[in-house]
Design a protein around this nucleic acid. Structure first.
Lengths: 84, 84
DNA sequence: CTTTATTTGTCCGTATGTATG
DNA sequence: ACATACATACGGACAAATAAA
């Protein structure tokens, strides 16, 4: 791509689209456990406001895909803890 | 006019009349490129509902006179972009 | 211990998008 | 055409937590 921007699907909140994209990266292994998912990183890459980036991380946290430590950041969850 | 209101032509939608007025201001240079065209500003100046102000900006957008960024506002289009 | 940098938490204000009555 | 409400989004500001210099 020559633009470096993001293309948005209409009628779907950007926060959801961003969450879906990052979820894809997590599940593909591109974002391994403990990989950082910083709000400001999302702001820069996707060209959205922090408000929107924040909602995206909220979605990912609710899905259990990342965990957040105030002052440190959000990171991809390690799934090997549920010992089925 | 003695008041601060607007006078309306009968049998013509107010949204169209507002769009024509703003188009006149754009073409005259009173509204230069990137000049904001906020819905709430139209509501205040023309004394109409936001619903009507919105239809006016829709008309102007379809005419290519303004562009809109959600969360920021609508702004007069810059037409000199392909000769940079 | 203090300072600095980074990142999340929270709050405010503004503006558009959509839906309902 | 009007009035209202809510969701989504942008921008900025400040506080709190964490880590490192």
């Amino acid at each position: 791509m020559s633009d470096g921007q993001w293309t948005w699907e209409p009628d779907i909140p950007r926060s959801q689209q961003i969450a879906s994209e990052i979820q894809k990266r997590i599940e593909s292994g591109e974002y391994p456990p403990k990989h950082p998912v910083f709000e400001l990183r999302i702001v820069q890459e996707f060209g959205v406001a922090r408000d929107t980036a924040r909602k995206a991380t909220n979605i990912l946290r609710e899905r259990g895909l990342i965990y957040t430590v105030r002052g440190l950041g959000s990171f991809v969850t390690t799934k090997d803890e549920k010992t089925e």
